[in-house]
Amino acid sequence: MRDDNVRKGILVPGLPHPLLCPEKNEGWQRVRDAYEKARIEIEETDAEILVIYSTFWPSILGHQVQAYPEPEWTFVDEEFHDLGSIDYKFKMDPEFAELIVDKSKERGLHSRTVSYYGFPIDTGSIVALKLLNPDNRIPAVIVSSNMYANRAESIVLGKSIRDAIDESGKKAAVVVISALSNRLHTVEIDPKDDKIHSLKDHEWNLKFLEYLEKGRLEDVSQLSRQFHNEARVPKVVSFKPFWIMASIMGQNNLYDGNVLAYEPVWGTGSAVVTLTPAEDTAGDLEYDEDDPEFFKGDREVLDFYEQPSMGSLEERDGH
């Protein structure tokens, strides 16, 4: 294993079925079992902080980081309320949350902590924390997913989080909460009949999983725009989770990938994947996107040439 402050990257889905009713579908149970395997993988590292990026928590005002020390509530999902309530009490790391905000601001992002009793923590974060960190052994932070952010802003956010990890001296496990294909069945189904919503979604999921199994995280990141067009219901402007994950983890393909489960959960492509820093895996194969270091605000088409300082894109393509 390569020595890296990020000990592990973990992709998990966020729908509540594997937590609340895994017994209703064999695939949901396999996803539940995969969460357990991922939990053990995390435990076997010396990770001191869980950094969670949840696509289930949209933000508008820049990037929000959960900093309430012990959020506690009885939660009900707004869609799957008939599956039951979820009692939770989590342990956050407010100092680390503040550090992420500081580092984000240094890189030009609008960012803030949120620390309020009763703040509605999202379904995905609740499911992930309940299953990956059931005893709150490791303190966590949760980072929101800005609905307007595109690639440059997401890459810079990931780098800011990495800055915080490195400055803190803590070893981290990074958890990204997202389905692959996100098309739900929009009708009631018998849980036993669950399947990936379409063959096209399934094929794109398999392609991404093939890459992830080979540890090609940066390649997956670079293909996110294509995946968004092919296999995502476009509820937000872009498919960000692998941009964030790759950016935090070093923007390379040097990982051991472990696909622990891939199953439909209410039609969505739900995978549990772990990535462990490795010395040598796949090569650099798909890179063609830019690599910004700072965020200078939204970049409109017509002022493309007037903002020369956001990363290296302009140096290559602006002249």
Binding site: E78, E79, H81, Y116, H185, T186, V187
Partner: peptide, 23 residues
């Protein structure tokens, strides 16, 4: 909601609402 249209079906609710965007 994505699976149909839902309706509140209990006669009272009392709690705290915190806006996730503007808490």
């Amino acid at each position: 909601t994505f699976i149909g249209t839902h309706f509140l079906g209990i006669d009272s609710f009392k709690s705290l609402s915190v806006d996730p965007i503007f808490p």
